[in-house]
Write a protein that binds this DNA or RNA. Sequence first.
DNA 1: TAGTTTTACGTAACCGGTTACGTAAAACTA
DNA 2: TAGTTTTACGTAACCGGTTACGTAAAACTA
Lengths: 334, 334
Amino acid sequence: MTYTIKDVAKKANVSTATVSRILNDQGGYSEKTKRKVLNIIQELDYYPSGIARGLTNKRTDTIGVLVPNLTSSLITEFLNGIESVAHKIGSSVIVCHTESHGVKTMKYLQLLHEKRIDGLILASTVLKKEYYDYIVKMRVPVVLLSAYSEFPVPYITANDYEAAYTGTKYLIQKGHKDIGMISGNKEELIAGNLIPRVEGFKSALFDYNIPFNESYIEYGKFSIDDGVTGLKHLLNRVPDLTAIFTENDEIGMGVLSAAYNLGIKVPEKLSVIGMDDISLCKFMSPPLTSVSLSHNEMAEKAANLMFKMINSDTEVSNCILDHQIIERQSVRSQ
Amino acid sequence: MTYTIKDVAKKANVSTATVSRILNDQGGYSEKTKRKVLNIIQELDYYPSGIARGLTNKRTDTIGVLVPNLTSSLITEFLNGIESVAHKIGSSVIVCHTESHGVKTMKYLQLLHEKRIDGLILASTVLKKEYYDYIVKMRVPVVLLSAYSEFPVPYITANDYEAAYTGTKYLIQKGHKDIGMISGNKEELIAGNLIPRVEGFKSALFDYNIPFNESYIEYGKFSIDDGVTGLKHLLNRVPDLTAIFTENDEIGMGVLSAAYNLGIKVPEKLSVIGMDDISLCKFMSPPLTSVSLSHNEMAEKAANLMFKMINSDTEVSNCILDHQIIERQSVRSQ
DNA sequence: TAGTTTTACGTAACCGGTTACGTAAAACTA
DNA sequence: TAGTTTTACGTAACCGGTTACGTAAAACTA
């Protein structure tokens, strides 16, 4: 068996209270006792049980992160950022791959509830009422990462509408008039009846007097594959597109790939701009121009916010980060 | 405050033992009592504490996964596979991003030890003696994923030597004679004094009577960036290379990217073959030929093996998976 | 030096579950 | 119907820590 605090106490001829005090640097013991106990701890190779400690402390030093997709680069970069700040603070992170699936998500929430996590981050997840209600019951700090919600839950996100507007405007200013968009899953994107990135796209076209037609938008999911099938569908419907704005970079990568296989030169015959500016963009052929949403900063902010809430119980404000076009080589002037 | 089993018991006029029995489907109660208790559980919205349960059960339904790099696609795909089987089994996974850093790794191991995880998977990690010693003390099932070790720890991996041999042979049979290799971090790759993929590469050249020179191998790390700088260095040293074999696909992607920016057509001027066959390969321009190491299967096998060990305590055997060339468009006949 | 304060602990309850053991009542048996 | 078995629980100890409270001894004070 592995040793417990009692074994240490007995061997050191002190009480468990004293060992506990020493372990937690709480004072109330002599230097001599401290040395003696510390020696025995080392000798027995004793490690306190986080489980037992968690039971009394009501603190598990564990947080949960819900992600819709573990194979998406954006999500992975989020996870990376969160894990990094969690580790600095001494917390562990449990990853939950929901696949944007309602039932799975609820199951994960229950699991995390039972595990008594200290806090929760929902990345790129639309906060359904069902989730919100449950989270309220969990009584645990939650922050939304790259998502917006009308429920009173703090979020760290970019202004998707404006970012999409900026991206589209960029294409327009490069002289494009026949611009298609490939978007993600309609249902997952809706934040208050509107799909922000789609609306931003439409508004830019409208403001610059470019006629718009619903057939210019293709809806799929969010993966690279959806970019390749999306381009094919879009080009079937409207073959004279000169530029494509994609909901995210993964779709953008799919477009690049499909274009390559179709023999359509990018950017000579087709310009494409993505969103998020994931780190893969710059390694594409051609390097993919993208609207950066400062997602590294976003993940760290979200994590820091959550830990602040855990430690201080203060309500904290939302945060909307800037966006910025990162010009590379997938867009050319028309 | 949130309710405990005592609240439920009191309200139902039964003992906590009965509530516990009902919660765990252990029998020893009447249907009537069961219904009454279940109703009260629902009414109070009671969820048992996994922490308290873990304390007595010595089971936390949590496993740890150590990964060297959270932004690598291969690793992410591993993580995805592991998380998936863990969730099916009802376990949660704690991700630990070690960055292949010894001190960080040890710190993570201690953390996981304190958290009393049920099992541990080390992905793409060289098992140092220090780690091994600690893991032995943890007394927890461990499996190595995509790694080999001389310590008695089960591993699920591919035969790196042979896979590299096969990949190189493929290039040779396509008529290439001037073949370079871009490898990863020397220190991290050494398994018993040899770097398997490098040795496989060398052996293939040797067997086919192709003169070899150490300058044909470039060592970097494992990222895409190392592929781009690697190609530049390699081409500086030996400009007449017609093919490159890369340690992994990320490096391969870097080579593709660098080649594009250098104006070197792939595969017309330069053939490149990667390893691992990550899912991004097929979306590259051109799609990247790669030696598949069945890594999806690998991750699932590793996870299943670990859970089997958790549940049955039986020592289990290692597993070496097959490899296979996935031909795409980044290699041409010379 | 007698009284007071501080130090360095120990005792025991508690966190929220599980479970071995015991037992009254119900059901069964012959 | 008396004896035996089974059912349906309850009691209390335990898992491995933390901590409020109490106290003897040491240190201080006047």
